[in-house]
Each structure stands twice: as C-alpha cells, then as structure tokens.
C-alpha cells in the first residue's frame, strides 16, 4: 500500500528557499525597527560637537559618562525629579488602577446584580474612548474646580482602566465556581476569597492590565501638557519635550535630550522583557474577540 506521499514530498530544496525569503523579510523589518534605537544609543555617547560633525550611524569620541553626569546635574537634578514623577504617575496609578479594575471585572463576572451589563457596557465604551480624547475635557473640568497644575490632575485620571475591567471579567469567568463555593463553605468572606484565591488565578491578566496601563500613563503626553505649568511636576515625556523645544536657545540641551531619551526608555524595556511570560498569556486571552 502506498500511502501518504504528500507529507514526505516537500522538505529540502523548496523549503530552503522559503526559509531564505522569510529570513530576508524578517531581517529587513528588524533593521527598520532597530534603526532609530541604534541611532539613539550611538548618539547618546557623543559630545554636542560630534553630534553635528560626525556620521550619525557611527560613534564619535565616547563620552556617555560625561553626558549622563550633565543630564543628572542640569537644573539641580530636574531630570531625576521627572523620572520620579513618571514612576509615581505610572507605577502607582497603574497599580491602583489594576486593583480597582480587577475587583470590578471580577464583581461583574461573579455577582448577579441589577445594572451589571450596563456598567460593563460603559466600561467597554470607555475602551473605545482613548485617553487623548479625554485630556481636554478633563482639563476644562479641573480648571473649573482649580485643580490644574497639581500632582492629582495627572495622577487621578491614571487610576481608571476600562480595558482592565474588560480583561478581568473575561478572565474571571474561567475561575471555577466550585473553588469559590468551597471557600464560602469554609466561612471565608468574599473579599478574602478574592484576595487570596481569585487573584492568584487572575495573575496573568492582572500583569497584562498593569503593564498596558503603566505604558499608557508613562507615555502620556497630552494630559500633562494641558494640566501642568510647574516643571517640577512634569513626567519624563513632557520634560524631554520642553528641553527639545528650547534647543535653539540652549544648544547643549540637544545632547541632554538624546541621552535623557535613552535613559527614559530603558526601565520600560526591562519591565516588558522581564514580565514577558505573563503579559503574553494575558494578551492571548484578550485578543481574537
């Protein structure tokens, strides 16, 4: 009996060509995505003079150390202040936001109450209304109550994550009811069940929610731009932008903007790479809907 000729037929020559074409495509695209980052790394090591006079794709005189020292010394260390602000806005905001979203998503999934579909509908609508669309209305409202130019004006909006509610609800539905019922029989309260049992099952989703909220707040630019005048309240994005916009008056800020940009992206890249295992699992569940 001659069976299954097809699967055996293909390998070798033809697939070698396919592998070659695929690799060329992937390498070209990788080059495109890495080019600006490579440029940033190279030029963060240059002096102001070399920045203009030497080839942008290769190193000049290496003075990354000097640039870093200048970066942190400028204006009494205002860069460190911005970094700390970003960390507070994004880290604390996303942290609180994740807990609130997780509780709400879980509550909607596990408790039967009037208006839960309405609430969920509003949260979904919130996913479709991006943060940039809300920045100006938020500014107008905060201006009405005199809250602009404060830490709270940027921080408070950061604790709301409608996407988090969506993902938490979807994930909560996978928690077996029997597990919760068993805990109830043992006399555990609902909050204790949530924080000891459910949270553990929800972890991949919660890491995803935290990360995406963290990135959204860390990268936020319009909201701080409209809210803040006091430069000690700026996050990194606004701070770097304010430096770049003064380059014609203070040319030395050019180098500082470049090295500051490099420093500001490193924490994010490390966080993403470090937590990859979690957020990829979370993203899989959130997609394909």
């Amino acid at each position: 009996m001659t069976t299954t000729t097809a699967p055996v037929r293909r390998p070798t020559d033809e697939s070698q060509v396919s592998v070659g074409i695929a690799m060329v495509f992937l390498l070209l695209m990788a080059g495109y995505f890495l080019l600006p980052i490579y440029w940033l790394v190279v030029n963060a090591t240059k002096s102001q003079r070399d920045l203009v006079t030497t080839n942008g794709f290769w190193f000049g005189e290496f003075q990354l150390g000097q640039n870093l020292a200048d970066l942190f010394a400028r204006d009494d260390g205002v860069f460190l202040r911005w970094a700390l602000n970003s960390l507070l806005y994004a880290g604390l905001g996303a942290g609180i936001g994740t807990v609130l979203a997780a509780m709400a998503g879980y509550g909607i999934a596990k408790f039967d109450f009037r208006g839960r579909e309405l609430l969920f509908g509003f949260a979904l609508g919130g996913v479709l209304v991006p943060a940039t669309a809300l920045a100006l209305p938020l500014f107008l409202m905060f201006a009405g109550v005199g809250l602009t130019n404060t830490f709270w004006s940027v921080f408070l909006p950061s604790i709301v994550s409608p996407f988090g509610v969506y993902l938490s609800r979807v994930y909560s539905a996978t928690i077996p009811e029997e597990v919760l019922e068993a805990a109830r029989v043992d006399g555990a309260g609902e909050l204790r069940i949530f924080f000891t049992i459910s949270v553990r099952i929800l972890t991949p989703a919660l890491v995803t929610v935290f990360l995406f909220q963290f990135v959204a707040v860390w990268n936020n630019f319009l909201l701080p731009l409209v809210m803040l005048q006091d430069s000690t309240l700026y996050p990194l994005t606004y701070g770097l932008f304010s430096w770049q916009s003064q380059v014609s008056r203070y040319p030395e800020l050019q180098t500082l903007t470049i090295v500051g940009s490099l420093v500001s992206v490193i924490p994010l890249i490390i966080t993403f790479l470090g937590l990859q295992r979690f957020w990829r699992a979370g993203l899989t569940a959130g997609s394909g809907k």
């Binding site: 995505f33 980052i37 990135v215 770097l240 903007t257 470049i258 940009s261 992206v265 993403f272």
Partner: peptide, 17 residues
Amino acid sequence: IVFFLPYAIPGVVAALM
C-alpha cells in the same frame, strides 16, 4: 521581541528620534 520593542518607547521619544 525586536518587533514589539517600539511599543515600549514613548511617543515623544519615538518622534524625537
């Protein structure tokens, strides 16, 4: 990872580069 990297970079920094 390489393809996803730009997403982790703030829009302000991406535009500056």
